[in-house]
Design a protein around this nucleic acid. Sequence first.
RNA 1: GUGGCCAUGGUAUAAUGGUUAUUACUUCGGUUUGUGGAACCGACAAUACGAGUUCAAUUCUCGUUGGCCACCCCA
Length: 472
Amino acid sequence: MILKKNNKKIAKKKNLSEKKLVKKEKNTPAKNDGEENTISTKGSVRTPALLRGMKDLLPKEEFFWKTLHHTAENLAEAYGFGLINTPILEETALFVRSLGRGTDVVDKEMYSFEDLDGGKICLRPEATASCARAFIVHGMQSLPQPVKFWYYGPMFRHDRPQAGRYRQFTQFGCESFGVHDPVVDAELIAVAYHFLEDLGLKVNVHLNSLGTPEDRQNYLIELTGYLRTKRSYLCEDCKKRLVKNPLRVLDCKNLECKEVLNEAPQIIEWLSESSKSYFMKVLEYLDEINVPYVLQNTLVRGLDYYTDTVFEIYLEEDSEGAQSALCGGGRYNGLVEQLGGRPTPGAGFSIGLERVISVLRKQTDEGTCKIKEVFPSVFFAQLGEQARRRALRLLEVLRKSGIVVAHSFGKSSLKGQMEMADKLKVRYSLILGQKEVQDGTAIIRDMESGIQEIVDQKKLKNALEKKLQPKV
RNA sequence: GUGGCCAUGGUAUAAUGGUUAUUACUUCGGUUUGUGGAACCGACAAUACGAGUUCAAUUCUCGUUGGCCACCCCA
C-alpha cells in the first residue's frame, strides 16, 4: 500500500529531473514488513525514534557520568552509607501509599501498568519508598541503627519534558533509617552539599521544618482558614491548591499571592516545642560543620511523607529557572510505618544528575568547569603488517602497565595516523615501521617539539613511564 | 496536563512557489605512497512525518511527531 502511495507521488513529480527520480526510486522500499511507517528519507527502513523525554548517554558525555559516580561513591562511603540497588520495577501500591494520593507524581506521572499475571506494577518514580520497603522486608530494624543507604540509578516520571527534565532521569541519593536525631539530618545535608561542592558548583541550601504530622495538621487548619478569608486575592492555581494541597500555596510565584502570604501564619510558629528545638539543633550542627544555609519558611515539599526537616539545594546564580533545584530531601518519620513496618524514623535526599550535568556542561562552555577530561597521552602508529602484529603485542604490555595508549589500526598511512594523534592531543606518538620491527626498536616522537628518539622495544615501557611521570 | 516559539546533511547555517538546495565544520580520500598542526582539491551527506492548496511545495495551510521555553509539578 505504501509502495503504491510512493509511486503515485513519484508519478506526480513528472517534471523532476531524471537524477532526482532515480534517487527517489532508490529510496522506495522493496517490500513492506507489515509494519506501519517503514518509509524514511534515509534508506528504506524507518529508524525507530528515541522515545519522548528519553536520552541516549553518548561517549562524549561519559566522562561526566563517571565523575559523578565516583564523587557520589567516595562521598557516600566516606560517610558510612552502604550501596543499595533496588529494582526499577515495583508494586504500584508502594508509591501510592508512600508519596500519597493527590500528589502529581502518583496521580499523573507514574509509568504504571499491569504485569503479565495481572499485578499492578510501575517503573519507580523515586527510590526512597523502595529503600523503606527494603528496610522492612529484610528486617533491618534489628541491625545496628541507623541503617544508611546510598543509591544511584534511573527513575521514571511521565512528565512533560523540558530542559533539565526527562522522563527517565538519574538520581543519586542517601537515606538514613532508624535514628531520630538532628545529627542525622545535618549529616545528610552535608553529604548533598559536599557532593555539589566537590563538583565545583556554588550552591545554596534552603531549609525549613514542617514539624510533626500533628503540627502540620494544626498549621494546615490555621493556614487554610487564613487563606479562605483572602481567597479572592489568590490566583487561579492557588484557589485550586487551597482545596488540593494548601501548603503549596506557600511557594506560589504569583506576586499577589506572595502579598497575601506576607500576613499568613508562619509554620515555624506552629511547631511544637520539641520540633522547634529539634530544628534549632539541626541548624547548630550545620553551623558546626560549616555548611551554609538559608531559612525558607515557604519551603514545603510535594511528597506526603515528609516531616520535620525539609531542604532543597539550588544553584547560587540564576535562581530563576524552574529547574534549578538540584537536590531535594528531608525527614520522613512516618514512612516506614505507613508501609507496614515498625515505626521507624528516617531521612534522606536525592540529587537529579541530569540537572547537575547540564550545569557542568554550561560551565565547561564558559571555561569555568572544575572537572577536566583526561585524554590518552600516547598514540601508537604502525606501518605494515609485521609492524601491526608487533604493535598489538606491545600495546598489551603498555596496557598492563596502566599507560593509556590510543591507536588507529583502521588507517594504514602513517600520515593518517599522525593526524589522528594530533586530533587526540597526545603528548607522544610511538612509531613502528618495518625498519623498527627488524631492529627491535621503536620511535618515540614528542608531539610538541617534534623531537624523535629511537628506543629499544624492551625499554619502551620504562621510557614512556619516565616521560609521562613528571608532568602527571 | 495548559500556553508560546521552532523543525534544512552528523553539527551549525543560507535560500527559493519551479530547473543542479548555499556555505562552514566534522567524517572519508587525495596533493609521488615512513611523519601531525597550514594550504589546496575531491567524496559522502539534508528540506521531520502525513495530508491539503497548486500545473508545480523544501517554501503556503492543517494535522502528527519531536525539540526548546514558561506554567503545573519535581530531581
